[in-house]
Design a binder for these strands. Sequence first.
DNA 1: CGTAAGTATGACAGATATGTGACATCTGCT
DNA 2: AGCAGATGTCACATATCTGTCATACTTACG
Lengths: 232, 232
Amino acid sequence: MKQQGKKILIVDDEASIREMIAVALEMAGYECLEASNTQDAHSIIVDESPEMVLLDWMLPGTSGLEFARRLKRDDRTAETPIIMLTAKGEEDNKILGLEAGADDYITKPFSPRELVARLKAVLRRSTPAGIEDPITVEGLILDPVCHRVSANNAPLDIGPTEYRLLQFFMTHQERAYSRTQLLDQVWGGNVYVEERTVDVHIRRLRKALGSHHEHLIQTVRGTGYRFSTKAS
Amino acid sequence: MKQQGKKILIVDDEASIREMIAVALEMAGYECLEASNTQDAHSIIVDESPEMVLLDWMLPGTSGLEFARRLKRDDRTAETPIIMLTAKGEEDNKILGLEAGADDYITKPFSPRELVARLKAVLRRSTPAGIEDPITVEGLILDPVCHRVSANNAPLDIGPTEYRLLQFFMTHQERAYSRTQLLDQVWGGNVYVEERTVDVHIRRLRKALGSHHEHLIQTVRGTGYRFSTKAS
DNA sequence: CGTAAGTATGACAGATATGTGACATCTGCT
DNA sequence: AGCAGATGTCACATATCTGTCATACTTACG
């Protein structure tokens, strides 16, 4: 059986651009869906469940930015990765795009190769195979489904970033990671943030874990941090 | 010990711009090299092997684009990452730049922070860390992945320099090294440090290893030290 | 033996790395 | 507009590491 290409939805109001992208993706083995406005896009996403949405920044009516936010708020569509397409000069908005829930952004004009490369990268990151089971370490439970953390049956008050950080650590125990690696893995590759920011979030995470579990987050001096059940 | 800054070559025909960039990078801990034309740039790249080239798009004589292509064709220089500096309005050429082999591009004017951030991102991508396996000797385990040393399953408290020293010894067993060689290998070639300093760190390492394993570090009188399982 | 060169060791002050609290900004919500 | 939660940065406090000395040992050798 021929491998079923993954479905990619292209949302752009210019038909020529949609077509160009569609051709590039189809050559790379993907199946393309197209929408010229957010209404169509929304119903396609709900009906067809594409693996990914390529979303133009500028759209008539609801802007791409706003649409992305909306998608992330809706449970039915929140899991679908989004790559924002921004035109030149709008680049400063990339941060907005990422914070709105986009998983990556790409600036027009772009080469087909670049598009496909990023698309693959995002798909790779966001294909959660079996990451659905809760992880437990010394009474500390992280439940990816409920998106909650609890210690000894008591829910923990933990922020989004701390949650992702903890999830990363709990799924990559024992190994030491540099601040840079953590930024790549937890914050996402294309976010430019000071390395020391990691320290602050480590601190917040430790605080949230409380004296009972903070020892799990170990400092590896001169290198970074590590999640380990063994004493350091 | 201050980390040795990575060398960055700045290629731009305007001295003022080079200077501005150099200041920004040096504040971020990089060492800067400068060239105003592609000829100088080429010899610097070959001679100094900088970790990265910041290449202006517009250059007298050979254009930055052409130069980038040339670098990628030469085995000696093909591995060096390139960030293209393009002026506003030249952005449409981004595709050409990327296809010519540039690893990223940045549009002037840009903030120092943005430059440093992208530079780090590119360096990160292009410096893949090798995977290493743990080394075990008589119950002494050094695990590069966890960045941890343990003796008989008990973690050892060991400082960064001692760690590097031990790692070097465990990957180069049975052979005697002079203090100078150790300084080169463990401290990194171009540091100005007393030879006696090696003695002190050897001492610290032995202490950390404890009576159980300190015999592995042997003194070779008149020469230096050796890591060996055999008695001396 | 005695001496000189080679090493080991403990102490230190300066240099680095990390921990922490505070703050300005931004977003989403009311 | 106003509030509450999150985030990224700073500046300052701590903690830990590093390179050098001065001094005590060891060893080789006349």
